[in-house]
Design a protein around this nucleic acid. Structure first.
Lengths: 308, 308
DNA sequence: CCATATCGTCAACGGATCATTGACAAATGG
DNA sequence: CCATTTGTCAATGATCCGTTGACGATATGG
């Protein structure tokens, strides 16, 4: 097992693009860098770099090692952080509220990491599509997608929310691709089943002109998951948030239509983290907020090109 | 940054319960072990062990460090594995099918790890509650909960499935706890809305005697998630798989009733991994199967006491 | 073309680090 | 009480690691 310093040296070399530059960065000699990389390669039995006098490039093995090295070094950093800050570390029960689908997709996966970092912290993720009362429901922090943040709480804006009209290539091949909003009348358009919700889609074009289109589908759901499944199964189109569909758009299994129009949603244009002023003083809430910021700012991960 | 050997030594000491036992295990001297632990503690500026001659116990800082050390060492192992096996590593698109809820809960979280380990591998998780055709739908491996495995495919049994009748303490406090199966008639019992599904629950007692009870509820869903939400909201009882409810049972927010009776389900008693014989030769399928085995055998993680 | 600068690597060398050894004190069980 | 086990210490030798100076390869400017 090689000394971990050489892992760090390796990462620096990749960052700086050459061993000499890495040596300057690390304030050591080129020979030391060269030696460490060489020994690392011997330890693993593969070459990590293709070498020419002026250019270093990673081999496939080097690419693999780089990814893993980054993660390992990050683990070590978080170990140090956790051990050194054990005294005032977040503890107790952190109660988070988020909507069903968004919460499962983007908040639940944060919790294992948070709990691992703060072993005395416990999280309760309350998933509901209803509006929660922060005080009455004892919620430390709620993720809300709303038009305006509430007055009785601090609402930190985390990410913009976009919605697109999506359908599968198969659906569009069979039924045609809508060219103007009025074409939607002839399509099966899934609308979230919300008691009293009107069955119209509202769109604005690039000049701000608004269109209200009556839409319909053979069946409906009060479940975004079910709507997405129906779209996937080529039963029709739907207005869905990009956080839900961006991965599948990237894969080509979902396509957006009427790209020159912007769906207007009843559900808000931004994601907010909401908490009462008294709660932000708790380390657990601060820690979670920091986690949210790193995950959703400046660009939410579902809008990043590498998002899967 | 201390040499990583001392992290490994630390983990061995925790495992073996003493430095002397760890030294024997590592085939080195007690003094070496003692020295490495001492230097590790100096590097972090905290004590990791409380020491008495016959007993070592972890400090809180030691507990934190232990968790992180395990993960870091695991990262290093997977790094070595990935680099050494890069030649015949799993690649291409692995298509997995699983039911909506189970797939999201237990299969989706495996994929990031799998993809990180095999960077040339891509996974497509097809979540559907319909039965898929392995060949026609081009599924490499399907997770099925079925009574009997299909004839046209290999079906490796992964885990037993149990179901329990659950309700919240609040619901049971308001409506009473059913003592015998016939009491269920007076309760709101959520039944999965499956076209043509009969509205009876079947239970067997410890002697194998079977009871068929007509059940009803004011509303129904074809979504396990929605059923669970309704149960959580104290609207009634439901027969739900333990993988879905065990965490909340452990927290006390859900309680089982009629524990002396076993619900008979239409959905099967075991979880199987199904694949066609030709597909198991692909490294990607073998890799995923290995991942499933480690996750679900011998005890599926939702049945483990530490499962969150 | 030559001179200069930069790059990565090598071998020799000295300093730093690490493992071993033998001894000690403390705790436990017979 | 004695024997055994445990963790720690200091001295010592072995091993590892960084430095130095030199080399060959490459690129650039005059």
């Amino acid at each position: 097992m090689a000394w971990l310093g050489s892992w760090e040296t390796f990462v620096r070399v990749v960052e700086c693009g050459s061993m000499a530059a890495a040596a300057r960065r690390l304030d050591c000699t080129r020979a030391q860098v060269s030696k460490q990389i060489g020994e690392l390669e011997r330890a693993f039995g593969v070459r990590f770099f293709e070498r020419s006098t002026r250019k270093l490039s990673l081999t496939p093995s080097g690419e693999i090692f780089h990814q893993h090295a980054l993660r390992t070094l990050e683990n070590i950093q978080s170990t140090e952080f956790a051990v050194r800050n054990q005294g005032d570390s977040p503890r107790g029960v952190l109660r988070i509220s988020a909507s069903l689908t968004f919460g499962r997709m983007f908040i639940a996966p944060l919790l294992p990491r948070l709990v691992a970092r703060y072993p005395e912290l416990r999280c309760e993720l309350i998933l509901t599509d209803q509006v929660v009362d922060l005080v009455e429901d004892n919620i430390d922090l709620a993720l809300r997608m709303t038009k305006v943040p509430p007055d009785d709480a601090v609402a930190k804006r985390l990410a913009p929310l976009q919605r697109v009209i999506v359908g599968t290539p198969a659906y569009l091949a069979t039924h045609g691709t809508p060219r103007v909003p009025q074409d939607l009348v002839h399509h099966s358009c899934f609308n979230y089943l919300l008691g009293g919700s009107d069955a119209n889609w509202r769109l604005t074009d690039r000049q701000g002109k608004e269109f209200t289109i009556p839409v319909s589908s053979a069946f409906q759901f009060n479940s975004v998951d079910c709507i997405l499944d129906a779209v996937r199964a080529s039963h029709g189109l739907a207005v869905l948030p990009t956080y839900l569909v961006n991965a599948e758009r990237a894969q080509g299994s979902l396509k957006t239509v009427l790209d020159d129009y912007d769906p207007i949603s009843n559900f808000g244009r931004h994601l907010y983290a909401c908490y009462t002023p008294s709660r932000i003083r708790a380390p657990k809430v601060r820690a979670f907020l920091a986690e949210l910021e790193s995950e959703f700012e400046p660009v939410p991960l579902w809008e990043r090109s590498g998002a899967d």
